[in-house]
Amino acid sequence: MSNIIKLENIAKIYEVGAEKVHALKDVSLTINENEYVAIMGPSGSGKSTLMNIIGCLDTPTKGTYIFTGVNVSDMDDNELAEIRNKEIGFVFQTFNLLPRSNALHNVELPLIYAGIPKTERREKAIQALKSVGLEDRIYHKPNELSGGQRQRVAIARALVTNPSIILADEPTGNLDSKTGEDIMALFNDLHLKGHTIILVTHEEYIAEHAERIIRLRDGLIERDEPVTQRIIPNHTLNEG
């Protein structure tokens, strides 16, 4: 199986005044296509930093990052934007939807930046909203939706460009456990459909939905092992 993410000796150093914060010290890892990976670790261990680098939102201070066979370590802002647009779908803990836009427009947004014409864009966005079970909420604004529904809009937005990987940073962190379950069921569906999924969590229970858990501590990989007893959500998605 081909690997789509290859990190070699990645380090990320933040300079806060005169002090240097080593958020990531020396991280090397590979992730294959259609893998379902959870990243765990205590607060401040560098999970989000790693996620941002994998998602091309941020560039490493040291090391090389090969994404789908291309070295992205020294790409410029616009090239990275293009990769984020086409290849990566983000799901955030706080949903990060545009508050003034309805669900449809939020989901359409990546397609607008990709330059997809209107009718095709509409079609794809509605399709994505259907796939997360929100076809009857497309004209609702974020503040007219529940937390779980908002996260599903965010997932639809992440899916709509059919990206190589879906990155989720604590996607269930702001949801109750029942709603979190629904979201995890959705990720499971996506995984079955062939998507590569990387999610950050500090809940063991959530992490065990994945096939593999990478544990970080103080900017280093502490352990990286497969999940022996995977939790498979037994219910498929329904309106909640």
Partner: peptide
């Protein structure tokens, strides 16, 4: 600022 961050995350270029 946050909105700009969101837009950039989903692929808005500098120019956009």
């Amino acid at each position: 600022t946050k909105e700009i961050g969101i837009r950039k995350a989903i692929g808005a270029r500098t120019w956009s």
